[in-house]
Amino acid sequence: MMNEVNLLTVTAAVFAIMMSGSGQSRTNLLLYAMQTFFIALACLAQAEAKGSPELYTVVIGIIVIKVLTVPYFLSWLANKIEARSDPGAFLPIPLTMHVSILLFALSHFLALGLPLFKGIGSVASDATGAISLLLTGMLFMLTRRFALGQIIGFLTLENGIFLFAVTQTKGMPFIIEMGILLDVLVAVMIGGLFVFRIQKSFEHIDVTQLNGLKE
């Protein structure tokens, strides 16, 4: 019924859903790391299936950069600026999780309706995971109050796009894959520094206060 790859992608999507249900920065980052780890495993399965050696390098890159370095850096940052937990904006955090489950269902139907792969069950449920990650990431960015949440949401979104690319195409050129990976690292570093600067100058990282800048 389900092969390894889409079990892995769906697990990654479930971790993203669980991540959206926690307001604690450390839990968020841990669950982000788990989610990315499962994406790396899915990528590994693809690498075996397609027999492309370049994908193995990508897997190692993901594990080193996105599973270990980025969460570690962000949790160090969260400690540094004492942003332990996010009270959430617009939606209560538990409700965010339930909405992201609905988005998961939505992405299932979206994936079934994808024109290119109609009828190929396993590819469709890979797409389910990927689209769900993308949507959950967007929801996460929308519903968090602190700038740290925006970074994590962005990373989840990026995970979704990456997963979609890996499972749905014949594979991107290696150099682009690695380029994106480095871009992510740089984006996180810059984002982290920004958060740090914002904390230093405004003594908070509450993005809902940005509205006040309009006047």
Binding site: V14, I17, M18, G21, P94, L95, M97, H98, I101, F104
Partner: peptide, 10 residues
């Protein structure tokens, strides 16, 4: 409890 609800929704 929201986590329990989420798991049953899934």
């Amino acid at each position: 409890i929201a986590y329990a609800v989420s798991m049953s929704l899934l």
